[in-house]
């Protein structure tokens, strides 16, 4: 479904992603593990079209997307729920969600259907739909960010550190929801995380990225058992 070959991206003159090869298949739930500054965000922004790679190719559903602008990539069915959420803080929850479905704005019925689906998963969003997004707590904002990404009905959803800054209980809740999205809605997911423990618990496969390079890949179980990974990311 998504296939990266030799992708390299420069950011601020620095090669933050270096010859990355990566693949995600239909229906999979894949993690991208790496510490601070490893290059996860840069890689995801590159896939989503917010940054342009200077080398390599990115294929999504058989089409090259590395030269497309972000809105075309969303339209193709690939949506990034970005680091730091990037909500529209002064707009209401409802408007944030409607904008999430911007690429489907001509399919009114479909949007309404997704909206009620999303409200079902995140009941709090329905109750407080008129509230400006910026007044939400961090956890609620993360829910909204995920919900907004779902509104585009993505075939592949990329999540960039959804657990960042959340209390352990909230992290648990978020991982439950992500799993649900993958299992029940059948959405393919690529999840970037520093929290390897959480990520490897719920995903099927994973890549470990360091200094912009993929250094390890394998099934989540293998990675969890890997001595290096345990030392570096799980702290056991």
């Amino acid at each position: 479904m998504l296939k990266l070959e030799q992708v390299s991206t420069r950011i601020g003159g620095y090669r933050a992603v270096n010859s990355v090869c990566l693949e995600v298949r239909q229906g999979e739930f894949v993690s991208l593990i790496g510490g601070n500054g490893a290059g996860k965000t840069t890689l995801m922004r590159t896939i989503a079209g917010a940054l342009k790679p200077f080398q390599g190719s990115i294929q999504f559903m058989g089409a090259a997307i590395e030269k497309l602008p972000p809105d075309r990539i969303v339209r193709a069915g690939l949506c990034l729920c970005p680091e730091g959420r990037r909500l529209f803080p002064q707009l209401s929850v409802y408007k944030n969600l409607i904008l999430g479905a911007y690429t489907r704005r001509n399919d009114r019925l479909g949007v309404q259907r997704t909206l009620s689906q999303v409200y079902e998963i995140f009941p709090v969003l329905k109750v407080r739909k008129e509230q400006p997004a910026g007044t939400f707590s961090g956890g609620e904002q993360q829910m909204l960010a995920i919900a907004r990404a779902l509104m585009s009905e993505p075939k592949l959803l990329m999540l960039d550190e959804p657990s960042m800054g959340l209390a352990p209980l909230m992290v648990e809740k978020v991982s439950e929801i992500i799993t649900l999205i993958n299992v029940e809605m059948g959405t393919t997911i690529l999840l970037a995380e520093q929290n390897a423990h959480m990520a490897l618990n719920i995903t099927q496969r994973g890549y470990v990225i360091e200094n912009g390079k993929v250094v390890l890949e394998g099934s989540s179980a293998e990675l969890s058992d890997n001595e290096q990974v345990r030392k570096a990311y799980i702290g056991a």
């Binding site: 949506c79 990037r86 408007k95």
Partner: peptide, 16 residues
Amino acid sequence: EATAQDREGAALVGIN
């Protein structure tokens, strides 16, 4: 309004 508040955020939800 969305673009004014977060240009990249807007691009990432599919706004041109």
